[in-house]
Write a protein that binds this DNA or RNA. Structure first.
Lengths: 114, 114
DNA sequence: CACTTATATAATAATATAATTATATTAGTA
DNA sequence: TACTAATATAATTATATTATTATATAAGTG
């Protein structure tokens, strides 16, 4: 990839990360998987807004999804460029309140970042 | 600073970095100081657009300025948060064409990033 | 001082991004 | 199968960002 394209791809990714809501979502994901409903509970935003933020992060390869019944769980992609891992490491890790999907014992903790 | 504010300040900074033009400017600055006129030559953008991008990066603390006569030189701030330094390290370093301000022998090379 | 050059700022137009509301999809359940 | 819950998508509105054009400032030069 030439330098120009390389920079463009970096800026595309950094643009996704450079948003308060999405960065906060990533901070929540540091502790492991979270289901969509948790984000809906935690943020003062409509459910479609949450869904669209998650979609962008998924499209950018920042997170992966796992569907289980009607619930959809998201987790950090563990193959991120190192400059993105550094950003995530610099984030405080936020604790989520419990939610139906968690009481069901389905959420799986994540391996710590390398 | 609480977590919320910390995340907000990170997203403010990442938003500035998450722009193709500005990221390319940072890539040019990896090799050392550049004067505004060089950016004006290098980018297919109006002079005011260049000036405004530089102003944003300066306001965000990413770069510092040094005025010499009518020329203004910008250089990377050497006290950046490590997650920002990592981004800059991940950038290819771009070579600028020579420009009047450089022929004048005024541009000073930068120490490599820690 | 008049003129030019380099840069910055202001006002505004163009564009991109993020939110909402409304609706669709899909899985589970009575 | 009808109903509900969880999530996604579409359409649209609201807002933020980036660009341009016009103008201002400030330094250097004849």
């Amino acid at each position: 990839m030439n330098d120009e394209k390389e920079i463009e791809s970096m800026s595309d990714l950094l643009k996704i990360v450079g948003d308060k809501t999405r960065l906060k979502m990533l901070a929540f994901l540091k502790n492991g998987e979270r289901c969509v409903c948790e984000f809906v509970d935690l943020f003062d935003l409509s459910q479609p807004a949450i869904s669209q933020h998650l979609k962008k992060m998924r499209a950018a390869g920042l997170i992966n999804e796992r569907k289980q019944g009607t619930w959809v769980y998201y987790r950090l992609n563990d193959q991120l460029p190192s400059y993105v891992s550094e950003i995530i490491q610099a984030l405080p890790s936020l604790k989520a309140k419990t939610c139906d999907c968690q009481k069901a014992g389905m959420s799986i903790p994540l391996e710590p970042l390398k």
